[in-house]
Design a protein around this nucleic acid. Sequence first.
DNA 1: TACGGGGGTAACAAAAAGGTAACAGAGGAA
DNA 2: TTCCTCTGTTACCTTTTTGTTACCCCCGTA
Lengths: 227, 227
Amino acid sequence: MKLLIVEDDLALSDVLAFTLRRAGFTVALAYDGLAALAVWEREQPDLLVLDLNLPKLDGLAVCRQIRAQSDLPIIILSVRGGDEAVVQGLELGADDYVVKPFSPSQLVARVKALLRRAGRYATPGQLEIGEWVLDRGRNELQSSDSPPIRLTPLETRLLESLLQHTGQVLPSDTLIQLIWGHEGGDRAMLKQLVYRLRTKLETNPAHSLTIENVPGIGYTVEVRTED
Amino acid sequence: MKLLIVEDDLALSDVLAFTLRRAGFTVALAYDGLAALAVWEREQPDLLVLDLNLPKLDGLAVCRQIRAQSDLPIIILSVRGGDEAVVQGLELGADDYVVKPFSPSQLVARVKALLRRAGRYATPGQLEIGEWVLDRGRNELQSSDSPPIRLTPLETRLLESLLQHTGQVLPSDTLIQLIWGHEGGDRAMLKQLVYRLRTKLETNPAHSLTIENVPGIGYTVEVRTED
DNA sequence: TACGGGGGTAACAAAAAGGTAACAGAGGAA
DNA sequence: TTCCTCTGTTACCTTTTTGTTACCCCCGTA
């Protein structure tokens, strides 16, 4: 399980990395906000430990950016322990907020608790739904009884977003955010992408996986389990 | 979204219940460990807020028992803030551990963060009335024992407005404001909308949900509970 | 009886949202 | 280079949703 620690205090960063590695995690490090985003992109960690007070790009901004594009578990570290700060951090999408100073062992426990809750202990690069497996690492959708369907990177992200929220209707704007990030992406492109993905899903004889539209809101995925 | 608060300090319990209810949650209460298990069974809450120091049955024991049978999100409250206590609580299966004293607003934020992470927050906008659930996230009206009725965005807003003021008669002008905002919308359109919504509500065999007119004033919703 | 207002019903038109298709540019691989 | 794939762009068609208008009924009152 890979963690990304973003902390500019080198002493603390070292201690955390040491403790977490001893607890069995793989650790990647970043020392400022911009680097954090780059490393996140490259390393695809399973959890982020994020200090708020960072050079170059504020921790809250990092949190917001990442949360806009993924549901990566995030634990914020901060010296600011006031209610407002905590509430703000959590509302921005963080999952936990730990006030400094704290003990490394407590952080380890919180990391484990969050990973457990986020269900990341299971399939790091694979999403299982019914008879389907979405392999994010190789951009394809595998079924037990038919050849895999090759997807493009964008199609993979779309399907991933939908599958991670099975049963919910994802608003178009939310989807656009999840797929293209802040800038770039509009309704027309989403329309296109949905169309292309649907076309591919239909190539499967028993297309038990369909994308439904809810007018005025967005899209959902329907998983028909075998009758 | 229903929360179960297990706390034997009545003063604190009251404050928490009040704050959480104001945040839009439904709250069930229990004051000792045995009661907690009973209420949990009966109420099937979506999240548990659990004090550790309880009469009759220790909080940790409650946590262990519940965790053994379900993956209910659990937040522990405790005066014991030492590392060992926190680690022990989290390792027992709790998702978060808040040390007293804390502010209600922070607890609300943590509750929300955990629900979000647990994927139980799937329903940020559901209105429950009798056997009906108005799902604003997907524009439909669901009943326990019949297929959902699909609504258009405007119909959803109309029904939502009416349901939020069950028992009151909403003047036509107020409704127009609520549905169309400042500009746009007139009596004729409201008439039409009410007509269309009624038509859809009638498709349900036992139409226990009807929209009544009060001449010269406006409309109300009538909820007939089962006889 | 005639008149007028409020409300219900209906048909039709306009506008918005969604689906489909064709095409072009970027960039990588052969 | 040439040939791919992937992505973005645009256009056009279909469906859904919303707005418009007209006509009816009921009821109270002049």
